[in-house]
Nucleic acid binder design. Structure first.
Lengths: 351, 351
DNA sequence: GTTTAGAATGTGTACGTACACATTTTTAAT
DNA sequence: ATTAAAAATGTGTACGTACACATTCTAAAC
């Protein structure tokens, strides 16, 4: 059923039907009612191909995410965003990715300027440098540019959507898995390894969740918790890490709330004769972590589908701008538990 | 980038480019190569709106899957297929779902007749009744009707795609989780619970994977394996099940390779004072299983994303028929490990 | 050097919609 | 009744592709 046929049925021209459909006015009440009745009756559905062809709008989406070197965590959200672009570019969604240095506020602001110059129809933002990110969201809001957040949220922001994970729950899950492996007794070391100076809410929440699980367990009396902080790149960080890994008393498990557990695994592997019974639980399926998971040095990794996060972020703009559909304001992706046994089917899992 | 622009770049007409793109021949080798090079270079993507408009085809896809009552496993693939239709109907993908009774070959064949009468452009098939399913695939092949398989595969069939899980690996994973929970010692009971008489390859493969893991472990000496079969609906099946659950010797763990572990959980719960330390690992996030996972009676469930399977099956036809893209011949979905701690984020996870 | 078949290439139209622009009809003021 | 303004309605073109049909070129046969 086409506009043409409706026009014929109503004894009017295409243009009149068109005006009614788009509520452009300039139609007498009588004809409007007649046409609406026919549209209703024949259940007219516009042909989305024809509509898409003639509208042929294209949208510029700019993604602002941390730069990375191969194999680092932030490669994965980028990968997902790019994959989404591959599928959605045919619908007029055009992507620009801008990378900033997590450790440099000037770098971030430089990219913000670039971003604004591009006059985007939508922005995907990883608010890693929280304070500056908030400033950007204010600017976007006042410029009526919609934005989606990935990885971590900015509460009370007017984001089109937030796509990430429940970090607190992720920590609880890590604790559960580690406790199961160590038979719920002994000393557990939480080692926070970071490569930048930003306040990292995600790490903090994972640690809180981890502690929460243990403090509310019925075997809390059998567990001792130790916490360590390592800053990659600082003087002696490797020695400090080695120290943190070395079994004190009765260390049986280590939890690293960032994607950096491979550094711990490397330590353990180097001293495998004395440390082989220490269980490791960490986050994120980056290549280095996967390597040690396969070797059995790391026991569990928790995945948060970062590629999927990126994919969904761009897709949210497609749904919003192209299809005119509503998108969920908040989306927590599943916390995947990865072991040697199910690792192989999590690798090409973007969509 | 349009055909017109490519034609201009190559100094030829639209028609010539068109012939190259559609491999209609009647183009000299030299120009063909030139055009292909340009297409490659500019990464030409056809405008799907224009294409859709001119082709204006609609496709009938028929899905043939087992019937179910609410909360049963087969509800989930159906849900996924329907969700995909919602998204894809606007592109001309029309869906017909036919439900057959898993326990009735005549019911299946009746639906096959119905299916063929619909003259589908594609078929989604759950080959639960293996022998009959194979016959159908032969018919479809000779009628040049493409088909996709979900849930379990028919090796050597000419399916457009198979979407399912690696059942053997799923069994291995189950064994790993159960052994971790029971500290790698004691008696494990494998209880096969079925509601039909079909030879179920998936169950068999899961059991084989389960055994494989244990037989190749270094703690095999500490484990005893017992196997039981329960047919729902037969006389005394409940008594038999109770018997199978009752701890003999030193039963510390139970594995159910089907989605029916909630029946076991019900038994355990009813005798929780004496059986609370028996660990349970099963498959599939159906409502009844989830209930006992939340209560802590079931320790781990392994998910295989059945909604996703259904979604991808219909999407594979969209990609094949509408977009003309190639689709992966085989797709194993991840084996999700579900516990109390990460359950909440696996529920709305269709796409 | 013509002729001619066949290969190679070019041209024109349709698909259904959106929107600018052109034309006709109605209404109100004189 | 005439005219101008406003309201209502009609017309034409573009979007990018697929495919039928028309035209031009090439090489072989005489």
């Amino acid at each position: 059923m086409t506009i043409k046929e409706i026009a014929k049925l109503a004894n009017v021209s295409l243009g009149t039907v068109d005006r009614v459909i788009h509520k452009r006015g300039k139609v007498s009440k009588k004809t409007e009612e007649k046409i609406l009745a026919i549209i209703e009756k024949v259940n007219y559905q516009p042909n989305i191909y024809a509509r898409g062809l003639v509208l042929n709008k294209s949208y510029t989406i700019v993604a602002l995410v941390p730069s990375f070197i191969e194999g680092e965590y932030w490669e994965m959200p980028s990968k997902g965003i790019k994959m989404a672009e591959k599928n959605l570019s045919q619908f007029g969604v055009n992507l620009n990715i801008l990378y900033f240095d997590q450790n440099s506020v000037p770098s971030f602001n430089e990219k913000v300027d670039e971003l604004l110059k591009l006059k985007p129809d939508g922005v995907i933002l990883a608010p890693v440098i929280n304070f500056e990110a908030v400033k950007l969201t204010k600017k976007l809001e006042s410029g009526k540019i919609p934005f989606s957040l990935i990885d971590s949220n900015i509460p009370n922001s007017k984001a089109l959507s937030f796509i990430g994970q429940d970090a607190f729950q992720s920590g609880k899950l890590a604790a559960k898995l580690l406790c199961s492996e160590i038979n719920s007794q002994g000393t557990i070391s939480i080692i926070s390894i970071k490569n930048n100076e930003n306040h990292n809410k995600t790490l903090q929440q994972r640690i809180e969740g981890f502690k929460d699980y243990i403090y509310n367990s019925n075997f809390i009396a059998n567990i001792t918790l130790i916490e360590n902080n390592i800053h990659l790149g600082t003087a002696n960080w490797e020695e400090n890490l080695m120290q943190a890994c070395t079994p004190t008393n009765n260390t049986v498990g280590i939890f690293v709330p960032s994607s950096m557990i491979h550094h711990v695994a490397k330590c353990i592997e180097a001293n495998f004769d004395t440390m082989s019974n220490i269980k490791l639980v960490g986050n994120d399926l980056i290549a280095n972590n996967v390597k040690y998971l396969k070797k059995g040095v790391i026991n569990y990794l928790i995945g948060q589908r970062p590629e999927n996060q990126g994919y969904l972020a761009l897709e949210s703009f497609y749904k919003h701008l192209v299809l005119g559909k509503s998108v969920p304001q908040k989306k927590y992706l599943p916390l995947d538990i990865i072991t040697q046994e199910n690792l192989m089917y999590y690798n090409d899992d973007v969509v």
